[in-house]
Amino acid sequence: MIGRIRSQTEEASKFVVDWMEHRTGVVTILEHALYEPVPKRGAWMYTLGSAVLLLITVQFLTGILLLFYYVPSTDHAWNSVNYIMNEAYFGQLIRGLHYWSANFLLAMIGLHMAQVFFSGGYKAPRELNWVVGVILLLLVIGLAFTGYLLRWDQDGFWASVVGMKIGSYSPFVGGYVINFLLGGDVAGPATLSRFFALHVWLLPAAIAPFIGLHMFLFRKHGVFGSQMEYTERLAKLHERQRLEEYAGFEMDDDEDGQNGRSNGRDE
């Protein structure tokens, strides 16, 4: 009985998978995307990028959920966060996930970058992936900065004020930068609206295609390439040495191969 059900399920799922593969090529895509040879040594270090991706995904998902209750206006922003924390079911969990995964995200990005840096993963032909990664880092920092103000509490407010004033010291454009962020010349409703627009729309919309690009370039070149390439190069080197050795034998005695081999190269 169990066996029959199992075989039927297997067949049915095989049919579905084949059907999808035929029409979308999804299985091939997944195979390309999910399977990648990993060197045995330090394999866990290569999961840091996936950890970052997971945390960003958590940010997107919990952020979408928080938007169901959050109100981006100066007179109700804090109240709505209070509502999320105290009245909405699992509000503490959802906002806590958003908060903590934001914190861990930056830590993970730091570890991920350190791993890429120390393993030389930024070297040719992966320079552009490092560049895209740095753009992603800057976007995440922008998201972290703009998200802090949205709570509209003293903590976030003053951190944002100090951050904006730091920006105002940039040469030439400082005065414009701070007025752009403030949405005027004073921290008020316009500031909150702007930070909301940046945090919820502009920066996530900007980060998504760069994540795609990062993944594409990563799949194109591989992340642990340097080590793999090294093994490959070593194998090639050995092969070449062996060939040269054979060539030496053959040069000795190109007329009579049988004698040549026994003579070696003692000339």
Binding site: G175, Y176, N179, F180, G183, G184, D185, V186, G188, A190
Partner: peptide
């Protein structure tokens, strides 16, 4: 527009 209003036209929100 806030940048233009404050930095270029010299208006203020206060």
């Amino acid at each position: 527009s806030p940048v233009i209003k404050t930095n270029v036209l010299g208006q203020t929100d206060i």
